[in-house]
Amino acid sequence: MVLPDAVLGMAAEVLTALKAAGLSMVTAESCTGGLVAAALTYHAGSSAAIIGGFVTYSNAMKQICLGVPEAVLAQYGAVSEPVALAMVSGALQAASEADVAVAITGIAGPDGGNAKKPVGLVWFGVMRRGREPRAEHCVFSGDRTAVRAQAVTKALEMVRGVI
């Protein structure tokens, strides 16, 4: 997927803000498959603030890499507030040198949705070390590419809010 110029521009702004604040960041992504990390690392000099990312598409990877409890996944499902919060906390725990983390878990489509969790539902978690994690959700419209691009934009906005 080619990221829109607007998304890359926002990523550049977030990267500049992270560097100016002396902060480093890690990502934990499911339905975006690493696109937030890709948008940030598209820019030269990103290694000054981006330490890496986790693409945890499956529940098993969420457990192994991020420490998301199996019981939380079983009770709430992967696309939920508790999982987004566990993912963002787990990312900061796994990447001890990071100051900020963002997590994304959702249903990009075209399949996988239902009445309770429709295609386009995406949960986000954001956390700055030493602060409480925060979660939000959106229901985006459009095809798989549009949902993923909107999710990247929302994730970057949330990161900007904790810098």
Rank of each mutant, 00 (worst) to 15 (best):
residue 20 A to N: 10
residue 21 A to T: 00
residue 22 G to E: 09
residue 22 G to N: 14
residue 22 G to L: 13
residue 24 S to W: 01
residue 24 S to D: 03
residue 25 M to N: 00
residue 27 T to D: 07
residue 28 A to H: 09
residue 32 T to F: 13
residue 33 G to T: 04
residue 34 G to L: 02
residue 34 G to I: 11
residue 35 L to Y: 13
residue 37 A to S: 15
residue 37 A to K: 03
residue 39 A to H: 10
residue 39 A to M: 14
residue 40 L to R: 10
residue 40 L to E: 08
residue 40 L to F: 08
residue 42 Y to T: 12
residue 42 Y to K: 09
residue 46 S to R: 01
residue 46 S to N: 07
residue 46 S to I: 05
residue 47 S to L: 04
residue 48 A to K: 12
residue 49 A to K: 01
residue 51 I to L: 09
residue 52 G to I: 10
residue 52 G to T: 08
residue 53 G to W: 03
residue 56 T to G: 10
residue 56 T to Q: 07
residue 58 S to E: 09
residue 58 S to D: 02
residue 58 S to H: 06
residue 59 N to M: 07
residue 61 M to W: 02
residue 61 M to A: 15
residue 63 Q to E: 15
residue 64 I to V: 13
residue 65 C to D: 03
residue 67 G to T: 13
residue 75 Q to G: 02
residue 75 Q to L: 13
residue 76 Y to S: 12
residue 77 G to I: 11
residue 78 A to T: 11
residue 78 A to I: 12
residue 79 V to N: 13
residue 79 V to S: 11
residue 80 S to G: 05
residue 84 A to W: 11
residue 85 L to G: 03
residue 87 M to S: 09
residue 90 G to R: 02
residue 92 L to R: 05
residue 93 Q to H: 09
residue 93 Q to T: 08
residue 94 A to I: 02
residue 95 A to I: 01
residue 95 A to W: 02
residue 96 S to M: 01
residue 98 A to S: 09
residue 99 D to Y: 00
residue 101 A to D: 06
residue 101 A to V: 02
residue 102 V to L: 01
residue 103 A to K: 09
residue 103 A to W: 08
residue 104 I to L: 15
residue 105 T to Q: 08
residue 105 T to W: 05
residue 106 G to N: 14
residue 107 I to L: 15
residue 107 I to E: 13
residue 107 I to C: 15
residue 109 G to T: 10
residue 109 G to D: 06
residue 110 P to D: 00
residue 111 D to M: 06
residue 111 D to V: 08
residue 112 G to P: 02
residue 114 N to C: 13
residue 114 N to Q: 01
residue 116 K to S: 14
